[in-house]
Each structure stands twice: as structure tokens, then as C-alpha cells.
Computed example of a mutant assay.
Amino acid sequence: MSRKHVLWLAVAAILSVLVAYQVTSATNPPAEYLADADVPTVAPGVDVLAGIAQIDARPRRGDYRRDAFGDSWTDDTSAPGGHNGCDTRNDILDRDLIDKTYVAISRCPTAVATGVLRDPYTSATVPFVRGAQTGASVQIDHIVPLAYAWDLGAGDWTDEMRTRFANDPANLLAVDGPTNQDKGDKEPAVWMPPNAAFHCQYAMQYIAVLRGYRLPVDAPSSQALRAAAQTCPAG
């Protein structure tokens, strides 16, 4: 891929430190996304899921509500430029797109007006133009889907923690809209990015978020994540 994307985590020990958010400390800021990080390496013999609880299958609570994770986007984020009047979505677009122009909208003085996405999920180049159909071409994906997190324990979190999770830049990625729609709330056992070259980064970031929020993983997805991590270069 022309763009090395998403991960700065090399081995499980690092994953346990550079996390999105530690459940035991509500004051810790989420980890910042490193847009130009190298493809992560995994040392031989390292269990990338060490310390993450495993359950037999994904439970389906059936009571998931998107609004339980707060407003769609907030300005309470550690993404580059956070607390700047721009909500998380605009900050992630600014982080992930290239060749950008800007426009002032509402409280956000630097909303991305146009840009280009080098989509990690498909390896396609996707043009972005702000407008009524903006969300159709480029969307912001929750790498660990909100509904999946809800089923695995987020339904029992505080409102503040769920809002934090929904806006954590370590769990967000600008991607091709139709591909994001295809993913929906599917877990790794059911869906992985069509671009196999991105499986290493996707799996390692997925694992980082699970670890950071102390979420478990269903057994089929643990197999999928381990298989994807095996595509990472040896460290």
C-alpha cells in the first residue's frame, strides 16, 4: 500500500500501554492516532491476545441504542486539533485525508471542504467533497463497532465512558463509505477488510482497542485476529 496506516503497536506488551482508554482511570486521555506509523511488527511466539478475555460466542443483547454512546460526534477528543470547535468527525477527516482544502462551518473554522482518501479497507482512492452526500463516499468507521462493544460489555458502562469510546480517535478511521456500510457491526470472524494487505494493521488496532477498554473477544473472532496478526512482519 502507498499509505502505511493506523498502527504504532508492535507487540502485546506495547499494546497494554498504548491504549485508547484505561477503564480504571476516567481521567486518562485516549491515545492519539499516528497517521504515518509503520506497519506493526509482531515478535515470534507472542500471543497478541494475551490478557484479553475470551468468550465462546458474541452475545446478542438486543437492546443496543446508538444514542447510548452520546451525540454522534463531540469536540472532546485527543485527535490532532481536538477542542478546536470541530467535532470528532471533522478532526478525523482532517487527520486521514490528503490534498485538503478547508471551509469554516458553524463552530468549526477548519472543516475539510475537499480532499482525497487513500482507503485502507479497499486500497482505492476516494475523492471527498463536502455536501449533502458527503457521508456516501467517505465515512468514519468505528474499528471496534459500537454495537459489538455494547454486546461485549459497553452496555454496562457509564454514559461518559460510552461517549468517550465513540469519539476515541484510536478507534476511528476514515474509510470508503459503501465498504463501511458492508461492515456494519460485524465482528472480525464475519468481516475483515477486503484489502488483505491491511489485515495486520486492522487486527492490531482492533486488539489495542479491546485491550484498552478491557473488552473480551468471541472465540471465532480471536481466531480471525490471530490469523490476521500472523501477516504482520516479524519483529
Rank of each mutant, 00 (worst) to 15 (best):
H5S: 04
I140V: 13
A132H: 07
R107P: 05
G81L: 03
T134N: 11
L173N: 12
L210R: 08
P40S: 09
P178T: 01
Q181A: 10
A104M: 09
I105C: 04
P120N: 15
V175G: 12
A189M: 11
D99S: 14
A43M: 07
D36C: 09
F128H: 06
D141K: 10
V19M: 09
G135H: 01
V209M: 10
M161L: 09
G70K: 09
V217D: 03
R107A: 08
R214S: 14
E160S: 02
D176E: 13
P29E: 07
V175W: 07
R107I: 04
A35H: 12
Q223P: 03
A13K: 02
I52S: 03
L173Y: 01
M204S: 11
W150G: 00
G155C: 13
P80Q: 12
N167W: 04
G135Y: 06
R130V: 02
Q54T: 15
A166Q: 04
L34V: 14
L146F: 00
D151P: 06
D36A: 14
A147N: 05
L49I: 07
E32P: 00
G62T: 15
A170N: 12
V126G: 11
M161A: 05
S16F: 03
L18P: 05
D176F: 01
D141L: 11
A104H: 15
D156Q: 15
G212K: 00
A50E: 11
D156S: 15
V217N: 04
K100H: 14
G45W: 12
A132L: 13
D38F: 10
S78K: 09
A124W: 11
S106V: 13
P30R: 07
A234P: 05
K4A: 14
D96I: 07
Y21L: 12
P40G: 15
Q230P: 00
Q133K: 14
A208N: 02
V11D: 03
D67Q: 11
V19H: 01
C200D: 08
P40E: 11
V112R: 01
S222C: 06
S106C: 06
L15K: 14
Q54M: 04
S16T: 07
L152Y: 03
L152T: 03
P120V: 15
L146T: 00
Y121V: 08
D36Q: 09
R58S: 04
S72A: 09
D151A: 13
M1E: 02
V17G: 03
L173F: 08
Y148M: 09
A12I: 07
L93K: 12
A31M: 14
V190K: 07
A20W: 06
D159G: 01
L9W: 07
P120G: 06
P193W: 13
Q22R: 13
S106G: 14
L173S: 03
M161Q: 09
Y33W: 06
D36F: 15
W73E: 08
